[in-house]
Amino acid sequence: MNHGPLIFLGAFATVVSSFWGLVVAPQLQLGGLQPKLTTGGDAVYPSQRPGLAAQGHAVYVANGCVYCHSQQIGQSGVEFDVRLVKGGTNAVKTLARLREVLPDLSDDSARQMIATATNTAPQLLAAGLDHATADLLDRNLKPTGAQVQIVQRNLGPDLARHWGRRLSVAQDYLYDDPVQLGTQRIGPDLANYGLRQTNETVILTHLLNPRAVEKNSTMPGYSFLFERRKLHPGETTPAISLSAAGITQDVDKTTGAPEFFVPKPAARALAAYLMSLQSDAPLFEAPLPAPPPVAAAGTNAPAPVK
């Protein structure tokens, strides 16, 4: 040991730097996170889960759902479509301005677009541009009286699978303790499960016997969250019939009453938690695709995309 103090200092510096990087720095960055208004400005996000869903979180943790299901959406990029919503009065000038940014645009199709573009029937000028190019196109066309609409699209494999519309950010997990991020995706991501599936009976059936809902599911059934019995008179729990659970119907020979799978409180809490999984609020740090498609005049229905 010729260099005891040096070795001690080296080891100490290693521990301190990892403590700084893994504990102190994240705490400084995100420790003060508070619920805040969404970018639309209408709601405080996130809100506490309602009581039953909060209990369901504990069931989710206890049954280790996190080992097969993640709760985080990744996003690899963002791109912009530019749509013409008003052709402008001077078609020749508009065409020339368009040409400066989009040299590949054919004359005929461009004229066609300028003539037919309206607010309700926007014409797609260019897809997949970066923001600078889309912005340039917008500024280029403004002086001619033409108007364009810039439509943002978030990109990434998770988004292509319709698991969400934007990336997950720290704000989404503010009230989760412990946070169930997950590292494996043996099952699908659940960050927005509550938006995809809102039917409690379907969720309960899925928990009881996954194959009854998804034919090729590899998920184990959680039948211990249910009890198999006849319904009490006047009982209103969302009970699952044996045939719905994929078992041949079995009728009691003496009374003729069918048996049901009746969810225990834990199953209903878990279902409530799964339905509360909705990380889809527009936030500053995670913009949603915007603006939404224009509604046709006099209706509330969004226009068909493209």
Partner: peptide, 12 residues
């Protein structure tokens, strides 16, 4: 700044 550019402008 980039994020602010992407967001719809609000009047509030």
């Amino acid at each position: 700044n980039q994020l602010a550019e992407f967001l719809p402008k609000s009047g509030d």
